[in-house]
Simulated scan of single mutants.
Amino acid sequence: MSADVGDRITLHANSVDAPDRTGTIVGILGSDGPPYRVRFDNGDETILTPGPDATIAAPTVSERVGQAAEAAGEKATALAEEARATAEDVTGRAARAVADTASKLAERFQK
């Protein structure tokens, strides 16, 4: 069973009282197929090799757009966090440099 990242996978239940599980393939761990890393719609993530009770379908165009938007949002969040950390580091270094300079000036004036 072949799949691509972004494809939807449904694990059909083996009994009437259990619901089907549906998720998105977020990683392909084999060289040319299973096992797959799957993020289910409820947020759980697991590694699995689909059995005969699984179906895989390529996402629709609107689902692909949603996946791209989600990935872009995650990337933007990561970049914003990195920029904030860099700004805090630069601000901290600048504040330390100003404090050191002020301390040296204060020592000179005391002499």
Rank of each mutant, 00 (worst) to 15 (best):
G30F: 09
D41F: 09
S15E: 06
N14A: 07
P50Y: 05
T86D: 09
G66Q: 06
V98C: 07
E63D: 02
A57D: 14
D4Y: 10
Q67F: 04
I28C: 06
A99D: 12
G73R: 15
A83F: 11
A57Y: 06
N42L: 08
R21W: 08
H12L: 11
S2L: 14
R108N: 00
P34Q: 08
D44S: 14
A80I: 02
V98I: 14
G33F: 11
V38T: 10
P59W: 04
G30T: 04
E45H: 03
A54S: 10
L105D: 04
E70D: 08
A102R: 12
V61C: 02
T86A: 09
L105K: 03
A58C: 10
A72I: 08
S103Q: 15
I47W: 01
E81I: 11
A85S: 13
E81R: 15
G6H: 09
E45W: 02
G51D: 15
V26A: 03
E74A: 15
R93H: 07
S31T: 13
D89F: 03
G66I: 01
A106T: 02
R8P: 01
T91C: 00
E82M: 15
K75A: 15
H12G: 00
D17C: 00
R96C: 05
R37D: 08
Q67I: 05
P19C: 06
R96D: 12
T46W: 10
D89I: 06
L48Q: 00
R37P: 07
T24P: 02
R96L: 14
S15L: 02
L11S: 01
P34M: 12
A54Q: 07
E74R: 13
V16I: 12
